[in-house]
Each structure stands twice: as C-alpha cells, then as structure tokens.
Amino acid sequence: MAISTATETLNPRTWLYPTPRGLYCEPGDFYIDPAFAVPRAVITHGHGDHARPGHRKALATPETLAIMRTRFQDMPDTEQQALKYGESVKIGEVEVGFAPAGHILGSAQAVLAYKGQRIVVSGDYKRRPDPTCPPFEPVPCDVFITEATFALPVFHHPSDAGEIGKLLRSVATFPERTHLVGVYALGKCQRVIRLLREAGYDKRIWLHGGLMSLCRLYQEHGVDLGDVAPVSEAILETFKGAIVLCPPSAIADRWSRRFAEPIAAVCSGWMNVRARARQRGAELPLIISDHADWPELTQTLKDVGAPKVWVTHGREEALVHYARGIGIDAEALHLAGREEEDS
C-alpha cells in the first residue's frame, strides 16, 4: 500500500515533526492546527483546540474558515485561503490537499505530499454517517496520524438512532418536565438537532443563546434544522415537555433554574462510561460522539493501510499496542495544546 519507494530512504520525521507551537512541516514552513499564533497555519477544523485566532495566514476548507470568522470576530488580520475537499495547493515544496474527515461541518484531513511520500494528518474524525457533513474518506498513505480520544476497547458508541430514541422515550415518560440537553456548540448541537428531525421530532427545539450563531451558520450551509428558537424569546410555560439544547456547563448554572424540573441529558462519547457520566451530573447520558470509537479507529488503520502510524490526542497507549500487534510501526506523538475536548 506504500505510495513510493522513497519511503525506505526518507525519514518522515525529518519533514513533519512536533514543536512547542504545534506540528510543523519544514519544507512547507507551516504548522498544522498550531496551539499558538503562527505565520502560516493549516487548519483541519473549527474546534477550539485546533483552530485558534491570530495566524498571519490560514489555509482551511471554506466551511472551516466561515466557522472561524464566526468565532473570532471575522479575523480581519488573517489572510485566509480556502481549499475545497479534493483540491490541492503547493506550499513551499509540499503539496497540501484536504479530504473529508466526517467530524463536523468543514472538517478535513490534511493530505501532505513531499518527495513522493504522503502523510495524512487526520485531525479529529469519525466513520459513522453524520447528516451535517460528508463522510470520512480513507486516503492511502505512508504515514497516518490518528487521534485517540476514545482509543480503548471499552468505547463502542451505540447507534445514534438508539440514543435519540432514549431521549424521546424519556420525554414521553416525563411529559411535564423540561429536557435540558448538554451539547458542544459546534457540531454536536447541530448534529443532535438533525438526528431529532430524522427521528420524526418536528416540534420547536429551544436553544441556549450561546448556540444560536453557529446554528445559523449551519443553516446557511444548507443544514436544515427545522423550527429552532432561542430560549430568551419564550415565556415560561412553553418549556414543559420541551427539549432545550445548551452547552453542558449551563445545566448546573443559574441559567437552568427557569425550567420546570429539568432532566439533565448530556450528549458525549464520555457518557459511555458510567463514572464519567455521573461525574458530569448526567441524569440521562446519551452516547453521541463526533470522534471515532475503538472499532472505527482500528478499522481506519486497516483501511488506510499506512505502514507507519503516529498516535496523538488521547489514550495513545492502547492504540499503539493494538497497531503494533497487527504489524504497524506505531508510536505516540505528543502535541502541544490538545486538551480533552468535549466530545
């Protein structure tokens, strides 16, 4: 599956390696998802631990740039270069392209080619269908850099439809209470709304004010969210039996006191483990994740067929152990600025 014979002679670590500011590509003189402001950045997607403000130049998909402008007051000081999926551009001596990562709207894997060698920086990804973005595309490569957020065999994310069914069943069981659903503002929120619509839920979905601007942006990009409205526009009675989406932190906040005996639902891959769900105060944990689970991670290693895999961003140890077990030359890659994100 290796793309070139040069693999044997060229050590990939000589042209792409971690630095304190982030993953650096030397022959292109750019960083990928750097943790600090840099002269030139390639951004895989709009989440806060990947996309940061202040770069002089930023290359990303048009959707990711739109997300960054929404989050960072239009970014007037950043020279923005949009690159669609499937297109490529030369930066220095390196050919840079994007392939869909299936993580959130605009999310991409960065495909880097240099001297006949190809490295894929997959950013964050998942493999199951997501109604808000195109699916992950496996790109054959010499080195595959994978995330490992949920890289333990205990993480098997159940079907989205089943989890949404849990929420709707709870709404039917407790029709007089408000269901407060904690979701990450970018990606998870819009995906959960789409999943509810696909399950036939057509009532108005209420949103915490902090979720509005990104929802609007998704709608502008053709994601149909149906009837959504900010909580601030409603009178109290309406929330009995309602579904209200908010950032997870708002559930235990004073903001939540306006609702009728709220039930705290939290949507995240972490809900897979009971102690974690309890720690987050979830009364109704919903396992909906924008990251690959264990079967998806291991399947992806097989699909891309890279002889070398660098593991970053989570529980590297287990995935490295697994990859070595199937003959892959795997190692952990420690990157600056990656916190455990709300997934």
Binding site: P153, V154, F155, H156, V273, R315, A318, H321
Partner: peptide
C-alpha cells in the same frame, strides 16, 4: 482482547462488570 488491553480498559473504567460489558461485542 488480551491481558494488556483488558488491564488498560479496567483501569480506566474502574468496575469489572462494566468493563466486560463494554469491551464485549
């Protein structure tokens, strides 16, 4: 899943019955 991956899993979850329920397919 082998002793090593099972140990890592159990260590993370902290409950034997739950660990087995989660890793089993």
């Amino acid at each position: 899943i082998g002793a090593e991956l099972f140990a890592l899993s159990y260590d993370y979850v902290g409950d034997l019955a739950e660990t087995l329920a989660l890793i089993w397919e």
